[in-house]
Nucleic acid binder design. Structure first.
Lengths: 259, 259
DNA sequence: GTCCATAGTGCGATTATCGCACAATAGGGG
DNA sequence: CCCCTATTGTGCGATAATCGCACTATGGAC
């Protein structure tokens, strides 16, 4: 059926491209066929096109994402003016707290890191970077994002088949709803031991771009936030950073045009 | 003409998506029509599909890149294991030198930042972030990349219409070839005042992924590298970082499969 | 209200795309 | 060495996706 508002081939191509997220190493065509469910000939055509367009590179008998995809992310970050408006703030906060600090938003049913900073002393815990994704339900970032999302998003998140990342992950929908409600009410969210054992996260809101909420978050070992004073210090720093960063995406009127 | 190895619609869609790189703010459909050269109906169809697939978001009468594009970049970075293998090294080097340090590679005819780190004390100069692009000819990063690229790439770069970013930018092809050759010979590259007045950059090689070279680079004010000893210190730090980082993309055999 | 820029639709012609069946190639094991 | 299988590449007809023109609708500016 022909549809004037939808280019099926493009959508399929993007699906194929998405098959390369999350999997490290090269992917062979049979693997992509398996994951995408498309016909072998179709996958071949799409992969070759993606290669010709620079988004994939051939390596041996398989394909791999090309640095071209970074350019798209660069466009998004440039739009936020991340280099100037986000990075310095994250760095200052990270250094002040001696903890990793990240800016995140929501992409579909996941939280996604937009940018991050960490002091040299910070221990590498999860190895997250720009574009890394986290679950919405079992992280402070995710819950804070949900707290600022439309109810149908929250319900959709709760409806999805839940994966327990740790023993301590809360799985009861009502309890989760309550956590999210609390986050909304108190203006911050904290989660311990639910995504990664021994790790805890804190998140606070930072404006939004369109209807996309953003949050500032930090991660540390669980005990780091036990002392209320320590937690306050972290919250203060994050909120200060949030204030400095201002309303993300709020560019000065009329300066969107010039290069 | 039908082509079994090329999906025209996908390629066009990607072209449309690429129209959103580099431009900040929203783009209206007429603007995209202008830039892409496609028919209005085609652009509409492709934009709507990109929106449906989550790569664009509507905002008022225009479109904007969605955080979805970050997920692709995240896939690329995860493949490099950037969070664990790259970030800590960049951070250590940045702190040791008290300068911004970045990992870059080549995307088409541009240098592109893969990742970066900067100490809190570093002043924001250019506002670059992951996915930011730089010219190949007039930056240290670019020249070091060219020094490690196939001759035809170098010639293509030289053939492109050159833009002078500053008064001091070298424009003579032979002189540029010589600079690149020098970079290859001495194993590092330095450029001053050619891209941004008052700024200088230094770059050293760091292995490669497939046939894609990577470089480590740092930026500072011009006088920072005047003293040979200071330059040596910077080079040492960068080379040390390069060594620690090891051969990028060289994963341990057999660990590409498991999640 | 008119005017202009932008957005959305109908539809016929074209041809890109699909997906099967077949051929070629490449490893790997016996 | 040869066979067996997994993968890759190709021919081709049927299908319907895509194109692009012309027309209509919307909506903000004045």
């Amino acid at each position: 059926m022909s549809d004037r508002t939808f280019a099926a081939t493009l959508a399929k191509g993007l699906d194929v491209l998405a098959c390369f997220e999350g999997r490290t190493g090269v992917q062979t065509m049979p693997e992509v066929v398996e994951r995408s469910g498309f016909d072998r000939a179709t996958v071949r055509r799409l992969c070759l096109t993606l290669e010709a367009s620079g988004y994939l590179v051939r390596e041996g008998r398989g394909f791999r994402l090309a640095p071209r995809v970074l350019a798209l992310a660069g466009g998004y970050l440039a739009d936020l003016d991340a280099g100037r408006r986000v990075q310095p703030v994250l760095r200052d906060a990270a250094e002040a707290l001696d903890m990793e600090v990240a800016l995140a938003t929501r992409d579909r049913m996941q939280a996604i890191y937009v940018d991050r900073a960490a002091p040299a002393s910070a221990r590498v815990t999860l190895g997250l970077s720009v574009g890394s994704t986290l679950p919405l339900l079992h992280t402070a970032v995710g819950r804070m994002l949900l707290a600022r999302s439309a109810p149908e998003i929250v319900e959709a998140a709760l409806a999805k088949p839940r994966v327990r990342h740790t023993e301590n992950a809360e799985t009861d929908p009502d309890a989760l709803r309550a956590t999210i409600e609390t986050a909304r009410a108190q203006g911050y969210c904290i989660a311990r031991n639910e995504f990664e054992p021994g790790a805890a996260g804190v998140a606070v809101p930072v404006g939004s771009l369109g209807d996309r909420p953003f949050v500032l978050a930090t991660t540390a070992t669980v005990n780091r936030f036990d002392d209320p004073e320590a937690l306050d210090k972290v919250l203060d720093a994050l909120r200060h950073a949030a204030m400095v960063m201002g309303r993300i995406g709020h560019r000065v009127e009329g300066e969107s045009g010039p290069d």
